[in-house]
Design a protein around this nucleic acid. Structure first.
Ligand SMILES: [Zn+2]
Ligand SMILES: [Zn+2]
Ligand SMILES: [Zn+2]
Ligand SMILES: [Zn+2]
Lengths: 165, 165
DNA sequence: GATAGAAGTGTTATACTGTAACAACCCTGC
DNA sequence: GCAGGGTTGTTACAGTATAACACTTCTATC
């Protein structure tokens, strides 16, 4: 079994511009491969989700789209987000009603998300051990699995230390 | 490591009246032990959640409370549900915005939920293997864990077979 | 038992999240 | 060009959740 792979860690100091560019490039490639259209609107929404590594809510997307000159209504944002999700380019965090970009869209994965409730940082992990346990349980119960939602909430080290001071 | 324990299975043929009575009894005991008050309203809401083993939404609770002669507004339901959740008597299914009764409230557990998207049946499982995997990952990332959300969606065997016919 | 404080519930209003339905537009292949 | 499907715009509304304050009920203490 391969070791758990951290797709996006907490607070990684990095050139985020690079993050964003890479995400957009991978999105173009993924859509090309899947034969679906990454339109200008979808590109804009994806880049908004990728503005940072915290979960983005649909109505935040709407507000930012307005700033960009569009006059969008809710369905505009939800449709774009649903497209991106089905293409594997973003994940939905159910416990927050929000979306994060996926840094590795080309592999079909069911990830686990570790979320800091103080600073909103999210780490995406792909631990096949967890997945196998869940799959085994599903089989035992007779559930033909469609999707996993695994979201762990807590306080990240940085925020935890800040609280002590 | 103990084997995964199925707290509530799919479609178990059973005397549900017994289910309900037992749940209410355990709730009384749990509240007594925790030194919190299981008021009449909270008792009513808990019994509504326990009417069946499918997730119950807050506004369904509201509607049923109206039938029982109250004239409740949303906060009434949400406050009762939040109380029951904090007392460990119900779990919230994040991916459905709904609540299910917990059949084993006395043990502090973080469960996994297996959900049939066709018939809404929910199975609650307590697999320490899953929990340990997640805990290990949280430690590695430096997340001081507060709560787990593990929800597996799919189609249960019974519904799957019905679809074939 | 009176009485203050805490806990619980009622009530109004409002914010946030998400979708149905239909119109208009645009792209692609014929 | 011109159908036809996919995408976006637009209006309206459904569903989920909380803030704020009033009122009641319970509990502890005198
Ligand atoms: Zn980045
Ligand atoms: Zn943090
Ligand atoms: Zn039952
Ligand atoms: Zn089913």
């Amino acid at each position: 079994m391969p070791p758990p792979r951290v797709i996006a860690p907490f607070h990684g100091e990095h050139n985020h511009r690079k993050c964003l560019d890479q995400a957009m490039q991978r999105a173009e490639a993924a859509c090309l491969q899947q034969g679906v259209r990454l339109t200008e609107l979808r590109r804009q929404v994806l880049s908004l989700v990728w503005e940072n590594h915290s979960p983005t809510r649909a109505y935040d997307i709407l507000a930012r789209l307005k700033e960009k000159g569009r006059r969008p209504a809710p369905p505009t944002a939800y449709r774009a987000l649903e497209f991106l999700r089905s293409a594997g380019l973003v994940h939905r965090i159910e416990s927050l009603n929000a979306y994060v970009g996926c840094a590795d869209p080309m592999v079909g994965h069911s990830s686990q998300f570790f979320i800091c409730d103080r600073c909103d940082a999210v780490a995406e992990v792909h631990d096949t051990g967890v997945t196998e346990h869940l799959t085994r349980n599903a089989e035992r119960l007779g559930l033909h699995t469609a999707r996993h939602t695994v979201e762990i909430h807590g306080i990240c080290t940085r925020c935890y230390h800040n609280d002590q001071t």
